[in-house]
Deep mutational scan, measured.
Amino acid sequence: MKVMIRKTATGHSAYVAKKDLEELIVEMENPALWGGKVTLANGWQLELPAMAADTPLPITVEARKL
């Protein structure tokens, strides 16, 4: 699914347009965010693609819901 990742004042957030859902990312498998699992505030887990740590945000990526 397409997910937009952006930086907020409190960390990172994910927006899933198909579900009209925006949630804070509360847990990251990798400190650089990319190439691992993230957990959203509502409990969803997404697998993000591997990208460079300095990838500019906001960005829309293809993520997989676990």
Score class of each variant (00 low, 15 high):
L48Q: 00
T60A: 07
K18R: 12
E47G: 06
G36Q: 04
K65A: 12
T8I: 09
E23H: 12
E62D: 11
N30M: 10
A9T: 11
E22T: 12
I5W: 02
A41W: 04
Q45A: 08
E22D: 12
S13W: 15
L21W: 13
Q45H: 09
N30H: 10
K2A: 11
K18G: 15
V61G: 03
L46Y: 07
A63C: 11
I59N: 03
I5H: 00
Y15I: 11
Q45V: 15
I59V: 13
N42H: 02
G11W: 02
I5F: 02
A9H: 10
P31D: 12
K18H: 15
P49H: 03
E27H: 13
E29P: 00
H12R: 07
R6C: 12
A14Y: 12
T55Y: 03
E22H: 11
A50H: 13
T39R: 10
K65T: 11
L33V: 04
T60S: 08
T60W: 15
T39C: 08
T60Y: 11
V61H: 02
D54H: 08
T8C: 09
P49V: 04
M28H: 12
K18A: 15
M51P: 01
T8E: 06
A53V: 11
H12Q: 04
L24A: 14
I5D: 01
A63W: 03
G11D: 02
Y15S: 09
G35L: 04
E29D: 10
V61A: 02
E27L: 10
K19T: 14
A50Q: 12
K37A: 08
N42P: 00
A52R: 10
K2L: 14
A52I: 06
H12P: 07
A32Y: 14
P58K: 02
I59K: 08
A50T: 10
P56G: 07
P56Q: 11
L40M: 05
Y15F: 11
L66F: 10
V61S: 02
A41M: 09
D20Y: 11
A63T: 08
A52W: 05
T8H: 10
G35M: 03
V26W: 05
A53R: 09
G43N: 03
M28E: 03
V16A: 05
P31Y: 08
T39M: 09
T39K: 10
S13R: 08
T8P: 00
P58A: 01
E62T: 14
K37H: 09
A32P: 05
V38Q: 00
M51Y: 06
L46K: 00
L48A: 01
E27C: 14
Y15L: 11
L40C: 04
K37Y: 12
K7D: 04
I25R: 01
V38W: 03
K37D: 03
E23Y: 15
K65P: 10
V38P: 01
L24R: 12
S13I: 13
V26S: 05
M4F: 07
T55C: 05
P49F: 06
L33K: 02
E47D: 10
A32F: 14
G36P: 01
G35Q: 05
T8M: 07
K2V: 14
K19M: 15
P58I: 05
V3F: 02
M1A: 05
L57T: 05
L21D: 05
G43H: 03
L33N: 05
P56V: 11
K18P: 10
T39E: 06
E47T: 09
L66I: 14
A63Q: 02
G11V: 03
A17S: 12
E62Y: 14
Y15R: 10
A17W: 15
H12S: 03
A14N: 02
T55N: 02
E29V: 06
W44S: 01
E23C: 15
K65Q: 13
M1P: 03
D54W: 07
T8K: 07
L40D: 00
A53C: 07
P49E: 05
R6G: 06
A41I: 04
E29A: 08
N30I: 05
P49A: 03
G43C: 06
T10F: 14
A53Y: 11
E29W: 06
E22L: 12
G43Y: 04
E62H: 12
E62A: 09
K65H: 13
L48R: 00
E23D: 06
L57G: 02
P58M: 05
R6K: 14
L33A: 02
A63L: 08
G43T: 01
M4Y: 08
K37M: 13
A52T: 08
E27W: 15
L46D: 01
M4L: 12
P58L: 06
L21N: 07
M28G: 03
K2T: 14
P31T: 09
N30G: 06
E62N: 13
L48N: 00
K65N: 12
P58E: 03
A52N: 09
R64W: 11
G36I: 06
W34M: 03
V26G: 03
L24E: 14
L21Q: 11
E22A: 08
P58D: 02
L46G: 00
I59G: 00
I5S: 00
E47Y: 13
V3R: 00
V61C: 04
A41T: 06
V16L: 14
A52V: 07
L40R: 00
A32S: 13
R64G: 06
L57V: 04
G35V: 02
M51A: 04
V26Q: 04
P31A: 11
A9M: 10
T55I: 07
A14G: 03
K65D: 12
L66P: 06
S13K: 09
A41F: 05
R6V: 10
L24Y: 09
K65C: 15
A17N: 09
G43S: 02
L66E: 04
K37V: 14
V16N: 07
G35I: 03
K19F: 15
A50E: 12
K7W: 08
P58H: 03
M4V: 14
K2N: 10
P56D: 08
N42G: 07
N30E: 08
W44E: 05
E22I: 08
R6T: 10
N42A: 01
K2Y: 13
R64I: 14
L57M: 08
L24Q: 13
Q45E: 12
E47A: 11
K37N: 09
A63H: 02
T8F: 06
D20A: 11
L48Y: 01
L24H: 11
A63I: 08
L57W: 07
P58Q: 03
I25L: 04
T39N: 03
V61F: 06
P31Q: 10
L24W: 08
A9P: 13
A14Q: 02
L24V: 13
T10K: 13
P56I: 11
W44C: 14
L21P: 02
K7H: 07
V3P: 01
V26L: 08
M51V: 05
W34L: 05
A63R: 00
A41Q: 08
V26H: 04
Q45D: 06
L40P: 01
A14H: 05
H12M: 11
Q45I: 15
G43P: 00
T60N: 07
A32G: 14
K65W: 15
E62G: 08
M51H: 04
T55H: 04
S13N: 06
W34T: 04
E62W: 15
M1R: 01
P58Y: 05
P58G: 02
V3E: 01
Y15G: 05
K37T: 13
L46N: 00
E47N: 07
T10H: 13
P31S: 09
K2Q: 14
L40N: 02
I59W: 07
A9L: 12
S13H: 09
W34F: 10
K65V: 15
A14R: 02
E47M: 14
R6M: 12
A50M: 14
H12W: 15
A32I: 09
A53L: 10
L66A: 08
G11I: 03
A50R: 11
W44R: 00
S13C: 14
K7F: 07
A52H: 12
N42F: 03
L57H: 02
G36D: 02
D20W: 08
M4T: 15
L57F: 12
L48I: 06
L40V: 00
L40A: 01
P49I: 05
K37R: 13
T39D: 01
T39I: 11
R64H: 10
T55W: 04
A14K: 02
S13Q: 09
W34G: 02
L57K: 02
G35E: 05
K7T: 06
E27G: 10
I25K: 00
W34Q: 03
E27T: 10
K2F: 12
I5N: 02
P49G: 06
A32K: 13
T60K: 04
L40H: 01
L46E: 00
M51S: 04
D54F: 04
M51T: 02
N42K: 00
P58T: 04
W44T: 05
L21R: 11
T10G: 12
A14L: 14
R64P: 05
G35R: 02
G36E: 04
V3S: 00
P49Y: 05
R64Q: 10
A17T: 11
K19C: 15
A14P: 01
L21A: 09
M1S: 04
L48W: 01
M28S: 13
Y15Q: 09
L40I: 02
E27M: 10
N30F: 12
V38C: 02
P56A: 11
K65L: 15
P58V: 04
T60H: 06
P49L: 05
L66R: 07
L21Y: 08
N42W: 05
A9S: 12
N30V: 08
P31F: 08
V26A: 05
W44V: 07
K19N: 15
